[in-house]
């Protein structure tokens, strides 16, 4: 009876050109993922609310580290410490996170993936596919609608296990 769950990806990047490029590169997944963007962390929080209002389940946040105000890593730590967003997959896409910041992201935010700028579009897509697949499997979302566009084999295997329940 439940409609297919709409999954969302939030891109947080302050430079418009880069933001456009990321969003554009994620276009191939547009049929199964709703891609939204935010300019900074306060904007990102707002966006998450709006998405929640639209009943979109945010599966992945893709953040740049160097943002005006709160940094990307700190935002990821915040997300990880908030129950409602703890399951969200976290990917850092950045050219300016140093050693310390990265360690923090891994240890305190349970960073799932790190993409260095400039990124390869194939890599970006692969990472997003894999991360959202993880989210689906971890949170028990119905995988069937996503099999064609994400990591099909893994999702199918997950379905088999679901069947056992």
């Amino acid at each position: 009876m439940v409609d297919r769950v709409e999954l969302g990806v939030l891109v947080v990047e302050d430079e418009p050109e880069v933001r456009d490029a990321i969003v554009r590169d994620l276009a191939p997944l547009g049929s199964v993922l709703r891609v939204e963007s935010a300019d900074d962390v306060p904007d990102a929080r707002e966006a998450l609310e709006e998405l929640a209002d639209d009943d979109v389940v945010v599966a992945l946040v893709l953040v740049d580290h160097r943002l005006p105000g709160t940094t990307g890593v700190d935002f990821l730590v915040e997300l990880d410490h908030t129950p409602s967003t703890r399951a969200v997959r976290k990917v850092l896409i950045t050219g300016q996170a140093d050693h310390q910041d990265t360690i923090k992201a891994v240890n305190q935010a349970r960073l799932n993936h790190y993409i260095a700028k400039p990124w390869q579009p194939d890599e970006l897509l692969a990472v997003v596919r894999s991360a959202v697949t993880d989210f689906i499997i971890a949170t028990g979302v119905d995988p069937l609608p996503f099999v064609a566009h994400l990591d099909g084999p893994r999702l199918l295997e997950a379905m088999t296990h679901r069947g056992d329940r």
Binding site: R19, D20, E36, S37, A38, D39, E46, A47, E50, D54
Partner: peptide
């Protein structure tokens, strides 16, 4: 000029509501 994400989201919501097609 590039559109601020918040404005973009708002516009999209408005138009989406109006046309019934996000």
């Amino acid at each position: 000029e590039p559109l601020a994400s918040a404005a973009r989201r708002r516009a999209r919501r408005e138009i989406g509501d109006r046309l019934g097609d996000p």
